[in-house]
Design a protein around this nucleic acid. Structure first.
Length: 422
RNA sequence: GGAGAGGUGGCUGAGUGGUUGAAAGCGCUCCCCUGCUAAGGGAGUAUGUGGUAAUACCGCAUCGAGGGUUCGAAUCCCUCCCUCUCCGCCA
């Protein structure tokens, strides 16, 4: 959620910023909602204050054996006025909150202008794009030919956009997870954390997937509670500190967590239907940082380079781009995408999205830190380190050989019984 | 799943309808005293939100969550969540 005082005091500035990402802030609607909110709230609180006062007077009068009839009839009237005022306030408040929860985050000034991914700013390219003297296969073909992937079985067991891993591919999947977790905990100072994969509504509201992206979530059938499968570890890990005031000397908090992720992929029919690039379920090793606001920009650079290091150690060619205003996510103020080279598609594909949410999530989550005599909202950051399925696809495709075998990156071999090819 | 007991401020823990946002203790902060140390005395010590430019002042809300009864609810009623003990089941 964006800063209310900024929206109240300087709506034009907010509108101008949001328009860069193509969001049209309806200022006159906002002003009406805000005017009503203020009027209804003041009215309601005045009645409440009056009621509190009379209730005390009644108590006092009763104690002194004085008549309370007059006071009581007055109180009854106020009580009913208060009830009406509360009703009015509540109704307006719903629309008010809905309006606010659907406003995206303000963009960092460094975000380049642009409408689509075409306009993202290239930061750097790393590694050499492989050239093949044969026609490279895609990862699905390689996965099947090495007897490591079964898409048909997945459809039988579940439905489309799922996969079964077997044999060396299943092992490679596990090796990648282990390698990533080890690197981030041993070399980059992240604390490993294991979290629930099913979360409640408040958690998704806190990190911003709700209310706007309900369609993208898998909701669990549960009569009592509104529960969802996590779309990313960002949700449970960031919510770990919901409603907390963190000791400033403990910041920056850095977490790494491996979880499966579940996405309904509603509206992506026809996109990436082949292979494991876009599945309903995939593994991800996620990096999350909770920072002091003064430090978050620096922390985003660090987090991104920690994710990049995985690509470098795996010797995968990739590029780093800064997302433009039109392509950046709803809650993010600044995002770097890491894109790995996929030979079968002859282009770079997103493998990690590293974002600084600044105080957008922490305002919803109430994650604060103490500062002298006051409390300030922390900044939250996250990024994949990396998406495991896409990493696997990249390894298969980039390191394939004419024979159809695939060279396993050196750093993974210790996790694969020193196997060199698959 | 069955039976029972509970959920109060940073912590422990009082409080069954009325000046209780909440006793007391611990912890913490500041001050005083004590030639060091130990001890002692005093004051302060929640969060959110609104009126506001304000970390000044005032109001409102918050005693697991949400409803209800009442002039008035931490206290009474209902639903839900969670914790603990015993039994059952179970990876």
């Amino acid at each position: 959620m964006i800063d209310l005082s900024l929206l109240r005091n300087n709506p034009e500035e907010v509108k101008a910023n949001l328009s860069l990402r193509g969001f049209d802030l309806d200022i006159s609607l906002w002003e009406t909602l805000e005017k009503n909110r203020k009027a209804f709230q003041v009215e309601m609180e005045n009645f409440q204050a009056e009621q509190n006062k009379i209730a005390k007077e009644i108590g006092l009068a009763q104690k002194n054996n004085e008549s309370i009839e007059d006071l009581k009839s007055k109180a009854t009237k106020i009580s009913s006025d208060l009830k009406d005022a509360k009703e009015k306030f509540k109704t307006n408040k719903l629309a008010y909150e809905d309006f606010l929860l659907n406003i995206p985050n303000l963009l960092d000034p460094s975000v380049p202008p642009g409408k689509s991914e075409e306009d993202n700013e290239l930061i750097k390219k790393v590694g050499k794009i492989p050239s093949f003297e044969f026609t490279p296969k895609d990862h699905q073909e390689l996965g099947i030919s090495t007897d490591g992937m079964d898409f048909e079985a997945a459809v039988k067991i579940s439905k489309s956009r799922f996969v079964v891993f077997k044999n060396s591919i299943a092992q490679l999947n596990r090796a990648l997870i282990q390698f990533m977790l080890n690197t981030h905990t041993n070399d980059h100072g992240y604390k490993e954390i294991y979290v629930p994969f099913i979360v409640n509504k408040d958690s998704l509201l806190g990190t911003g997937q709700l209310p706007k992206f309900k369609e993208d979530q898998f909701q669990i059938k549960d009569d009592e509670n509104e529960m969802y499968l996590i779309p990313t570890a960002e949700v449970p890990v960031t919510n770990y500190h919901r409603d907390e005031i963190l000791d400033s000397s403990d910041l920056t908090l850095s977490y790494v967590s491996h979880t499966p992720c579940f996405r309904s992929e509603a509206g992506s029919y026809g996109l990436d239907t082949r292979g494991i690039i876009r599945q309903h379920q995939f593994e991800k090793v996620e990096l999350v940082k909770i920072s002091h606001p003064d430090k978050s920009s620096q922390d985003l650079e660090q987090l991104t380079s920690d994710a990049e290091r995985i690509l470098e150690l795996l010797e995968l060619p990739y590029r780093k781009v800064k997302l433009c205003a039109g392509d950046i996510g709803f809650g993010s103020a600044l995002t770097y995408d890491l894109e790995v080279w996929l030979p079968s598609q002859n282009k770079y594909r997103e493998i990690s999205s590293c974002s600084n949410y600044k105080d957008f999530q922490s305002r919803r989550l109430k994650i604060r830190t103490d500062e002298k005599d006051s409390k300030v909202l922390c900044h939250t950051l996250n990024g994949s380190g990396l998406a495991v399925g896409r990493t696997m696809a990249a390894i298969l495709e980039n390191f394939q050989e004419k024979s159809g075998s695939v060279k396993i990156p050196k750093v993974l071999r210790p996790f694969m019984n020193d196997q060199e090819v698959l």
